[in-house]
């Protein structure tokens, strides 16, 4: 074979410059649109901005106003209740469905597809469907009464003390498939030999799930809880479409409260304070999670 001359030296970027350049847009977006904006919102929450931002600093006055507002407290309490119901419901039902599917059913794909179907839909769509079904005059209540149960009452949508439960119900319906998928993946990752060993030892199936499998899925429970919590805090579309925060403000959530104060109530400073409290709520839960993930080197 003949020799070729060594390739001519081409002009090129110094080593490592190309990836750095490629990262410029992402770095700019991250820095400006995530972190600078958080700082901006925090700064605005310290001012008396109303319709437009101004820089009259009034210290923590907006936070004082926020926590003096009964509407905000209602929204916070609703978030607490909603988060507990939503996370608890999704986890419990999702885990149960995952276990049922994992028992080795035929047509597993069909069930899985059905359970995850609502995930593909918008929260607005979910909200409107459930609003229709829960409509006391024409929905489930009326239909059941039509079957002869004249006293049947399911009018939570229009009851101030129950409306938030309907939001949780619709939320669970939409997101239960997510939990099921996470848990199913977790169950599939368990060493089949554990099942063989348990069978040899004669341990009943339910005990294996309770005492062996569930503790092994600790990380999955952890992850799904974090995800659901972050979803709950961000819940906006669903409550808008389902109850509009009503009746009155009885099913309001912080995300809706903030949006309303920033966009339509000309209370930018107060809204910013609310938004910052939301961020702190998420951070309080997610930060330890990310820290642990990072320490495990999984992130």
């Amino acid at each position: 074979m003949t020799e070729t001359c060594p390739p001519r030296r081409r002009w090129r970027l110094p080593q490592g410059a190309a990836p750095a350049i490629a990262l410029v847009p992402a770095a700019l977006i991250t820095l400006v649109c995530f972190y600078l904006f958080i700082g901006w919102t925090f700064a605005i929450s310290l001012t008396d901005s109303r319709l437009l931002p101004n820089w009259e600093f009034i210290g923590l006055e907006q936070y004082r106003r926020l926590f003096a507002s009964s509407r905000w407290w209602t929204a916070l309490e609703n978030l607490g209740l909603y988060a507990v119901l939503f996370i608890g419901g999704c986890t419990l039902l999702g885990y149960l469905l995952a276990i049922l599917i994992d028992r080795g059913v035929r047509a597993e794909g069909v069930y899985r597809t059905i359970f995850m179907l609502p995930l593909s839909m918008s929260f607005v769509v979910t909200g409107i469907i459930w609003q229709w079904m829960l409509n006391p005059g024409l929905g489930i209540q009326q239909a059941v009464r039509g079957l002869g149960f004249e006293e049947f009452a399911f009018n939570w949508l229009v009851r101030a003390d129950r409306a938030i439960f309907t939001v949780a119900l619709a939320g669970i319906w939409q997101q239960v498939g997510l939990c099921m998928a996470l848990f199913l993946a977790g169950l599939r990752g368990i060493d089949p030999n554990i099942w063989k060993a348990a069978r040899v030892d004669g341990i009943p199936t339910w005990r294996v799930y309770l005492d062996i499998v569930t503790p092994m899925l600790k990380a999955t429970f952890f992850t799904s809880t974090i995800l659901l919590f972050s979803l709950a805090v961000k819940s906006f579309d669903l409550v808008v479409a389902l109850t509009g925060g009503g009746p009155g403000f009885s099913s309001d959530l912080p995300a809706r409260f903030v949006m309303e104060h920033i966009l339509t109530r000309q209370e930018l400073g107060l809204g910013a304070a609310g938004a910052f409290v939301m961020l702190c709520t998420i951070a309080a839960v997610v930060a330890p999670y990310l820290y642990l993930q990072n320490r495990r080197g999984a992130a």
Binding site: G16, A20, L23, L31, C33, P53, A255, A275, L279, I282
Partner: peptide, 30 residues
């Protein structure tokens, strides 16, 4: 290629959890 890239990744990852309400108004301004 540098330790900055892991830092940027972590910063992005955290960004997944930021509620849109927090950055919404400054985004409108931008």
């Amino acid at each position: 290629s540098s330790r900055w890239s892991d830092l940027l990744f972590a910063a992005l990852l955290i960004g997944l959890f930021i509620p849109p309400q927090v950055t919404l108004y400054p985004m409108i301004v931008l």
